[in-house]
């Protein structure tokens, strides 16, 4: 498939839909969490209001260029991640630029955002941000280790690193999903998913109790609005990769909505009811449980 300018418009549309989906879905998830507490929780459109409010703030304090660029990098990571995987399999409009990128690029984008954030937050000069960043980098690295191994197992299994092809291979029947064809890789990858979604027990990076929300502690107004946008986009983009790699992708928006929500709920299910690990505990956890599963996935392919 070759690049056409119309794809940019299509991609923008996809981005728009996904962001809105993310806005609504994360609010819904928060409402579900609130229900467990016994509350109603935020209104479903609260994310939009918060976004508008943050844009509406008048004063913007900056700590230098990197401080600006941090959220931008992070958003770029999210957008990039989304745009180089097919959101809807088989759809011309929503396959994005998936023909142009592959798994390696996707993994790169997963990291890119985190690194950008680290730079930006580091620039803010806040010790809590610095601690959060160092924790985040350490933890994300180990958490993505099983993911990387799973992806490697997958590429071995399907003999390709092209995501579209991997999705294509899973079509036809439920049992063609990687979930069933290679459950070990799926489990290994889920370690990575749970580990990077910033939910308990792996959210010590932005633990409010110890380091008031860590890296973004200094971010406010439009910077925060950017990060908020990313915060709804990035997890969904990540979920989209998982959906494509392990759960057969989505062929229409309804399927997308259901699957993305279901995958998103996995870390939520765990996160709501568990306290958090210390950073070295979660690293140890991934090395002890995630890494062997990942290796096993490769070995068994």
């Amino acid at each position: 498939m070759s690049f056409e300018w119309i794809h940019v418009a299509y991609a923008a549309l996809t981005l728009f839909i996904v962001i809105n989906y993310g806005m609504i879905m994360t609010a819904l998830v928060r409402k579900i969490g609130a229900r467990v507490s016994g509350r109603y929780g935020i209104p479903i459109w609260q994310n939009y209001i918060d976004l508008a409010k943050n844009i509406a703030l008048r004063s913007k304090v900056t700590h230098g260029a990197m401080f600006y660029l941090g959220p931008v990098f992070r958003l770029t990571g999210g957008v990039g991640l989304l745009l180089f995987v097919p959101t809807i399999y088989g759809s011309v409009m929503h396959q994005n630029f998936s023909y142009a990128g592959d798994l390696i690029l996707a993994l790169y984008f997963v990291f890119f955002g985190t690194l950008g954030m680290a730079l930006g937050a580091g620039e803010s000069g806040h010790p809590h941000a610095a601690i959060g960043v160092s924790r985040g980098l350490a933890q994300v690295t180990t958490a993505e280790l099983p993911l990387a191994l799973a992806v490697y197992a997958l590429s071995l299994q399907y003999q390709t690193i092209d995501i579209t092809e991997i999705v294509a291979a899973q079509q036809g029947s439920l049992f063609n999903w990687t979930l069933f064809t290679n459950p070990l890789a799926t489990v290994a990858a889920l370690f990575g998913l749970v580990g990077t979604m910033m939910r308990s027990p792996f959210d010590v990076v932005m633990a409010p109790q110890e380091i008031p929300i860590g890296p973004p502690t200094e971010y406010h107004s439009s910077y925060l609005a950017l990060m908020q946008t990313n915060r709804v986009l990035f997890p969904v983009a990540k979920v989209v990769i998982f959906m494509n790699l392990f759960f057969g992708g989505a062929t229409n928006w309804a399927e997308f909505a259901v699957k993305a929500f279901a995958i998103y709920m996995i870390p939520v299910l765990i996160g709501v009811v568990n306290p958090r690990f210390r950073v070295e505990q979660s690293i140890r956890f991934f090395l002890k449980w995630g890494l062997p599963v990942g290796i096993l996935a490769i070995v068994t392919v």
Binding site: S37, G38, R39, S200, P201, D203, A207, Q209, V273, P275
Partner: peptide, 16 residues
């Protein structure tokens, strides 16, 4: 103590 360790649900319930 639940809250300090990142589990807010207990705090929510017990405050209720």
């Amino acid at each position: 103590i639940g809250g300090a360790l990142g589990n807010g649900i207990v705090g929510q319930w017990l405050t209720y």
